[in-house]
Every structure is written in structure tokens, then in C-alpha cells.
């Protein structure tokens, strides 16, 4: 999979969160974005997800430029699956209905078939018997697994995960990370923002360090953690791996 950023600028209220980013990356399955909070990871993620458009510059995925028009962008989003940190699910719908809704109303799947797909995804993620529950009755880890099931139910090309475990306790974190690891092994393309360095090292093919409005460094996972080049990267890793 190829990603290239071509002079990408994104500013909020005069602050350039992404400042003329030029970057080319090629990786097999999984890209992990790491870096300090406020460094621009999530902003970059939102651009890659087609939720925002850059103020300047272009984002290309596999050679195709992401459109700026909301309708065309929406069509692009239909080919992706996105999971945020928390509150992904619609609280008024059961787990099953959460998965069925986009299948029926976005992808035009027939309701009966959509229900089958939703059930099989819940089963695959070991959530059988939880489908009728509303999100409030599920644990945090179960909620994130349902969210991932929803993001994958229409077989998207890319799965984008924006800090999917940051709101979870350690036990639930490993429950969700296990699942993401399985997806990667099954060949799913994944881009993920994470603070779980151990997980990034094991699972990602490529790790990119995002800070100070740009991508300071990117390298294959083993190389990135073994011998970081930039001072900022080294400092960040020292700090985060201290305890």
C-alpha cells in the first residue's frame, strides 16, 4: 500500500497542525502513527480517513488523490472503516443494529442479508449473544470490538484506527489489540494511531513518528525502535518506555 503526502497543510485557528508535510510511504499491511499528544497524529488520521480535507496540498492513497468535494469524499469513506478512541457506537441502537445501519442505508444491502453479515461479524469477534444489547450494557472492550466489527462489515480496503485502546483498561486493551493483530495477520490493510509501543513494534510494518506539524521519521518497525535517527524520536521513546 502506498501513501503520499504532497505539501499538506492543515491549520486550526491560525495554528498549523500539519505544516507542509511531504512524505512517501510504502508498506505491506500495517502503518502505525506514533508521537506525542498534540503533534498532529489525529489530524493526519482524519485527512487519511477523508473526514477533513487539507487546506493546501494533496493526499494520495495508492496513487489516487483524495477528493475535496464532500460527496466524492463520502464515497471514499464508504470504502474505509474508521474506529475512534471512544463513543463510536450509537447509544440508541443495539450492537447488531449499529452494524446493520450502514450496511442497509449506505451500502444498499438487503436487511435480512445485513443481519446475517452483522451476526457473523459479531461471532467472529467472539461477541455472540451480545448483539441485542445497547452499548451502555457492554464493556469498553466489547464496545470497541463491536465498533471494529461495524467498520469491517462492508469489507473496506483500509481500516483506520485512531487510538482505539486509549480509553480502555489494560485487560480490555489486550482484548482489542489481539483482535487487531488477528486482522493484520488475515491481510487487512490497517493504519493506526497508537500509544501502545509494544504493539506497534509487533504488529506494524512501518512506524511513522509524527510531531511538530510533520512526519519527522519513518522506518520499518524493528529498525524504528532499535535505532531511531532523530533526537526527538529518541527522546519520545525514552520517555514513553521508561516505565
Amino acid at each position: 500500500m502506498n501513501i503520499s503526502l504532497d505539501g499538506v497543510v492543515k491549520a486550526f485557528g491560525g495554528q498549523r497542525v500539519l505544516d507542509s508535510v511531504n512524505w512517501q510511504a510504502c508498506f505491506e499491511h500495517t502503518l502505525a502513527l506514533v508521537g506525542p499528544s498534540g503533534g498532529g497524529k489525529s489530524t493526519l488520521m482524519r485527512l487519511l480517513a477523508g473526514l477533513d480535507t487539507p487546506d493546501e496540498g494533496r493526499v494520495l492513497i495508492d496513487g489516487l488523490e483524495l477528493p475535496r468535494d464532500e460527496n466524492a469524499l463520502r464515497a471514499y469513506r464508504c470504502g474505509t472503516g474508521i474506529v475512534f478512541q471512544s463513543f463510536n457506537l450509537f447509544p440508541h441502537l443495539s450492537a447488531l443494529e449499529n452494524i446493520i445501519l450502514p450496511l442497509v442505508h449506505v451500502h444498499g444491502v438487503e436487511r435480512v442479508r445485513a443481519r446475517e453479515i452483522a451476526s457473523s461479524h459479531l461471532e467472529r469477534f467472539r461477541l455472540e449473544g451480545q448483539g441485542h444489547k445497547q452499548p451502555a450494557l457492554l464493556s469498553g472492550g466489547q464496545r470497541q470490538r463491536v465498533a471494529i466489527a461495524r467498520a469491517l462489515a462492508h469489507n473496506p480496503k483500509i481500516l483506520l484506527l485512531d487510538e482505539p485502546t486509549s480509553a480502555l483498561d489494560p485487560e480490555m486493551t489486550s482484548e482489542v489489540l489481539d483482535l487487531i493483530g488477528e486482522l493484520r495477520d488475515a491481510g487487512q490493510w490497517i493504519i493506526l494511531v497508537t500509544h501502545e509501543m509494544g504493539f506497534a513494534r509487533h504488529t506494524a510494518d512501518l512506524v511513522a513518528f509524527v510531531d511538530k506539524g510533520g512526519i519527522l521519521e519513518s522506518a520499518p518497525a524493528s529498525e524504528f525502535f532499535a535505532s531511531p535517527v532523530k533526537v526527538e524520536t529518541r527522546r519520545f521513546l525514552e520517555k514513553i518506555l521508561k516505565y
Partner: peptide, 29 residues
């Protein structure tokens, strides 16, 4: 919450669909 709008956009719902399936059911309650 903001994340509900984001989630609705992320799964590909249009504006009208977002109001109909996500926002208004929660507002009604």
C-alpha cells in the same frame, strides 16, 4: 456529542441520514 457526528460521517451517512438515524432518535429521547 461531536464523536456521534464523526461516527455517522465515518460510516458514510449523508447529512439527512445522519439526522434521521443518529441525531433525531437521540434528541427525541
Amino acid at each position: 456529542s461531536r464523536s456521534q457526528w464523526d461516527s455517522a460521517r465515518a460510516i458514510g451517512l449523508g447529512s439527512f441520514q445522519t439526522y434521521r438515524f443518529v441525531i433525531f432518535p437521540q434528541v427525541t429521547r
